[in-house]
C-alpha cells in the first residue's frame, strides 16, 4: 500500500457501499423501490479503490451497476436512496432510478445501462476538458462485457489518438447477466490484451484487494493528469448476488456454488480487516466508529427517502 493514510477512507467507502446495498436488499421485498437494482455486493473494492484515487473535481461515468461508483465518488446517500424510491428528492428527481444516478457536486456525471454506452461520453467529457483547458481526469467504469462492444474500441482508439486524460476501469466479474466468459470471448485471451491492441497502457489487478486497486488507479490518474494519456485497468472481481435484484441466485445453475464460495472467501472487507487490523495499520476502534457512522447514515437515508414526496410532474423534454 503506497499511501497508508488512505486506509481508513478506503474502508469507509467500501463499508458504505456494502451497507447501503445490503439495506436495499433487505427492504426490496417491501416493493416500495419500484425499479431494477443491480447490486455490486462483493465488488466494493474496485469502486472504492479507484474513486479514492480521484479528486473531487475529477469526473466519473458508469453503468447499470453503479451504486458503488456513485458512493465511491462521494455521491449523496440520501439522494441516491430517494431516487431508487422514485421520489422528488432523488438525485434525478425520480426520472432516472437506480440505473441513472448523478451527483454533479462530486463529479459523478451519470450512469447509463446500455452496455458500453457511457464509455465514449466519458471520453468526450475528457476531450471537452482538454478543449477548454480544464485540468481534470475522467474515469469510466464498465464491465468486461462492454469490451465486446464496438463502441469500446472506438472510444479507446480516440482516447489514445488524442492522448486524453481518461482511466478506463474494467470490472471483470466474469458474467454478462448469466452468460459466462466462455461463450463470449476466446479461452486463454485476457480482456486487457484486447485493449492493448489499441496501443494503450494496460494493467490487470486483483479487484478485491482495495489497496492494490488504489495503487493501480493512483498511477493511472497521475499519469492522465500529467498529460501522459489514458490507461486501461482490468480488475477481476465477482458479484455475489443475482444480476438484477436483491437475492442470491446460485440455484439457477449458471455458475457453480464452488466458484461462488471461492470468491466469497475473497470478500474485500474481510480481507481488509484481516490484513490491516492485524498489522496495526488501522485501529479497531477507528473502524468501529466508521461503521457506526455509516449505520446512522444509511438509516437516515432510508427514512429521508421514505418520507420524501413523490414528484408531481416528469421532467420536461427540452432544456430551456
Amino acid at each position: 500500500m503506497s499511501d497508508p493514510a488512505k486506509l481508513p477512507i478506503l474502508y469507509e467507502l467500501m463499508l458504505r457501499i456494502r451497507r447501503v446495498e445490503e439495506r436495499i436488499a433487505d427492504l426490496y421485498s417491501e416493493q416500495e423501490m419500484r425499479c431494477p437494482v443491480h447490486l455490486c455486493i462483493g465488488q466494493e473494492a474496485t469502486a472504492a479503490g479507484a474513486c479514492a484515487a480521484l479528486e473531487r473535481t475529477d469526473h466519473v461515468y458508469s453503468t447499470h451497476r453503479s451504486h458503488g461508483h456513485y458512493l465511491g465518488k462521494g455521491g449523496s446517500v440520501r439522494a441516491m436512496m430517494a431516487e431508487i424510491y422514485g421520489k422528488a428528492t432523488g438525485c434525478s428527481k425520480g426520472n432516472g432510478g437506480s440505473m441513472h444516478l448523478v451527483d454533479l457536486s462530486v463529479g459523478y456525471m451519470g450512469s447509463t445501462p446500455i452496455v458500453g454506452s457511457s464509455i465514449p461520453i466519458g471520453v468526450g467529457d475528457a476531450f471537452g476538458a482538454v478543449l477548454r483547458g480544464e485540468k481534470r481526469v475522467t474515469m469510466v467504469f464498465f464491465g468486461e462485457g462492454a469490451t465486446e462492444e464496438g463502441v469500446f474500441h472506438e472510444s479507446v482508439n480516440f482516447a489514445v489518438l488524442r492522448k486524453l486524460p481518461v482511466v478506463f476501469l474494467c470490472e471483470n466479474n466474469l458474467y454478462s447477466v448469466y452468460s459466462p466468459m466462455s461463450v463470449r470471448q476466446p479461452a486463454g485471451r485476457e480482456v486487457y490484451s484486447v485493449a492493448q491492441g489499441h496501443g494503450i497502457e494496460c494493467h490487470q489487478g486483483a479487484g478485491n484487494d482495495v489497496a492494490a486497486v488504489y495503487d493501480l488507479a493512483r498511477k493511472a490518474v497521475r499519469k492522465a493528469r500529467e498529460g501522459g494519456g489514458p490507461t486501461f485497468l482490468e480488475l477481476k472481481t465477482y458479484r455475489w448476488r443475482e444480476h438484477c435484484g436483491p437475492n442470491f441466485d446460485n440455484d439457477l445453475g449458471y455458475r457453480t456454488v464452488e466458484e461462488y464460495e471461492e470468491w466469497r472467501k475473497l470478500c474485500p472487507l474481510e480481507a481488509f480487516e484481516k490484513r490491516y487490523l492485524a498489522s496495526g495499520a488501522v485501529a479497531a476502534d477507528e473502524l468501529r466508529r466508521i461503521a457506526e457512522r455509516i449505520e446512522r447514515e444509511v438509516a437516515d437515508a432510508v427514512a429521508f427517502a421514505k418520507s420524501s414526496p413523490f414528484p408531481q410532474e416528469a421532467q420536461g423534454v427540452y432544456a430551456p
Binding site: 477548454r132 463502441v151 482508439n157
Partner: peptide, 18 residues
C-alpha cells in the same frame, strides 16, 4: 476516426463538458 457511434458519444460528452 471512422467511428460514427463512438464519436457521437464523444461529441455528447464534450457537450456535457461545456
Amino acid at each position: 476516426p471512422t467511428s460514427e457511434n463512438g464519436m457521437t458519444g464523444v461529441a455528447i460528452g464534450s457537450a456535457l463538458a461545456g
